[in-house]
Amino acid sequence: MFKGKKGKVVLMLMMSMLVVFAAACGNNANSGNTENNGGAATNNVATNAPTEEAAKLSGEIKIDGSSTVFPLTEAAAEEFNKEHADVRVPVGVSGTGGGFKQFCAAEIAIADASRPIKDEEATACKDAGIEYTELSVAFDGLSVVVSKDNDFIDHLTVEELNKIFMTGSTVKTWKDVRDTFPAEPIVMFSPGADSGTYDYFNEAILDKAGIRNDEAISFSEDDNALVQGVSGSKYGIGYFGFAYFEENADKLKVVPIDGGSGPIEPTYDTIKDGSYAPLSRPLFIYVNNKELERPEVKEFAKFYIDNIGALAGEVGYVALPDEQYATEAAKIQ
């Protein structure tokens, strides 16, 4: 009798726990619905009366794509939210390719891209009836780095880089690269094949032949691991985004690259004026034109172009020339 009662108490406890959970979830759902309705209502008001749009913007602008562009978009979203607190700007990092896939399925409003859209991606968008506007937002410079202790490298040519990293390369020691270098084995570090940085290096330096994959080279998706690797080995060499070199300039030595017109060191100036070739690249955002009709998306795109020049340096990228921003801004008027 007593035991039965106890059992009942336990069961009751269990049930009440469930009820509490259910209630919590129920509330969630309800408040979410009202919030969504509220959001939709304000949207309508804003469309009907554009004069009020600056005062009350809301809604959601979904963004996804390149992890290289992410810091820029994150910065833009953060600053944008200071002015328009009710607009939600979630940003994901599915990679440039993953971003375009969602973009052409109309799942997101804006795609971050570290390269221009490919033909097949453009076709996919077209087939889905999606028109878009391409906006250049900043430059990224790939920096080739060696250890601070390396005292023999003053520059490398594109051919030499090609010789070192090319798939099937027989280069083992620095002497194999240039006769004046010591006969010490080269220790190589590279971002993994899934990263846009790998793609870009592969394209700009190796003509898409692929990076060697043998015991002389280590791959890592974590740029900080690459920094550790290069700074820790006297005969090491590696490459990654300019931002990572900037942050670790005290541990690394950047290698000026000769692309045919003399060695150029990557700096904000050489990346900006395009002389640091071929290792500087433009970064883009792609905006769905239909989404661009929503006042909050338009406002965000404008805000992005107007402010990204100032924000780029802060997150380790290089701003475009001012007249270029004017051109980009004109695309979304």
């Binding site: 969630n28 978009t73 939600r88």
Partner: peptide, 11 residues
């Protein structure tokens, strides 16, 4: 998502 600067309010 990676950057989310709001609280989810609905399911």
């Amino acid at each position: 998502l990676t950057y989310v600067a709001y609280l989810p309010e609905g399911l």
